[in-house]
C-alpha cells in the first residue's frame, strides 16, 4: 500500500528558503528526494519566515512578527538593541539564546499568531526543522501531537526517510 505522507519543512531564520534547499540538495527537489528515499507519495508544504520562490504556496510568517504583545513590549524597552550588543560576546550570545528575542522563540510566537501556519503544522505526518531556528516550533508541535515525527536537518531527514518510512511501507 503506497500511503502518502504529509511533510512540512520549517525554516525559522530569515534566510532565503530556496538558498537553504539548494545548499543542502544542489538542484534536486526536496519533495522528489523524500519520495525517492521513502518509496511513498510525499506532499510537501513549507512554513517559513521569508518567502520562497519555489514554494509560493507556503505559509510565510515573518510578516506576522512584531504583532505579538510581547514583541511590542520588548521593542519598546530597547531589548532589541541590547541583544545586538550582547551578540558580540560569547557570554552574551549564550544569554541571547535563552532570551525572548532568540530567533527560534520569535519564530514560534509568529507561527502561533498565524492560524494557517498552525493548521499546516497540525496536518503533518513529518516535520522537518531545516534550520536551528525552526527546531523549537517542530519540537513544540510534536509535544502537542506525539504521533508526528520531527527531525532536524535536511540531510538527516533524507537518511531517516530511507530507513524508517521505507520500512513502514514494507511492513
Amino acid at each position: 500500500m503506497n500511503s502518502s505522507l504529509q511533510v512540512v519543512a520549517i525554516i525559522g531564520s530569515p534566510t532565503d528558503p530556496d538558498q537553504l534547499f539548494r545548499s543542502a540538495l544542489g538542484g534536486d527537489s526536496l519533495q522528489e528526494e523524500l519520495a525517492k528515499a521513502s518509496g511513498r507519495d510525499v506532499r510537501l508544504q513549507v512554513v517559513s519566515w521569508s518567502p520562497s520562490e519555489k514554494f509560493p504556496q507556503g505559509v510565510v510568517v515573518g510578516t506576522a512578527a512584531g504583532t505579538e504583545a510581547m514583541d511590542r513590549v520588548l521593542s519598546r524597552i530597547g531589548a532589541v538593541r541590547l541583544q545586538g550588543v550582547l551578540q558580540k560576546y560569547p557570554a552574551g550570545r549564550l544569554l541571547n539564546s535563552l532570551g525572548p528575542l532568540d530567533q527560534s522563540r520569535v519564530f514560534w510566537r509568529a507561527v502561533q499568531k498565524r492560524e494557517d501556519a498552525v493548521s499546516v503544522l497540525r496536518s503533518a505526518d513529518v516535520l522537518v526543522a531545516v534550520d536551528l531556528a525552526a527546531v523549537r516550533t517542530a519540537w513544540k508541535t510534536r509535544q502537542n501531537n506525539p504521533s508526528v515525527a520531527a527531525y532536524y536537518g535536511l540531510a538527516s531527514t533524507l537518511k531517516v526517510f530511507a530507513t524508517r518510512f521505507a520500512q513502514t511501507t514494507s511492513s
Partner: peptide, 29 residues
C-alpha cells in the same frame, strides 16, 4: 559548502543573496 555542517551557514547565504542582482549565484556543493 557554506560553513562546516550539512546545513548551510545562514549568514553567508544572506550575504550572497544581496548580490544576486549582479550575477552572483550560489549553486550548491
Amino acid at each position: 559548502r557554506l560553513g562546516h555542517y550539512s546545513e548551510p551557514d545562514p549568514k553567508v547565504l544572506a550575504i550572497l543573496d544581496e548580490y544576486r542582482d549582479v550575477g552572483v549565484s550560489y549553486e550548491g556543493p
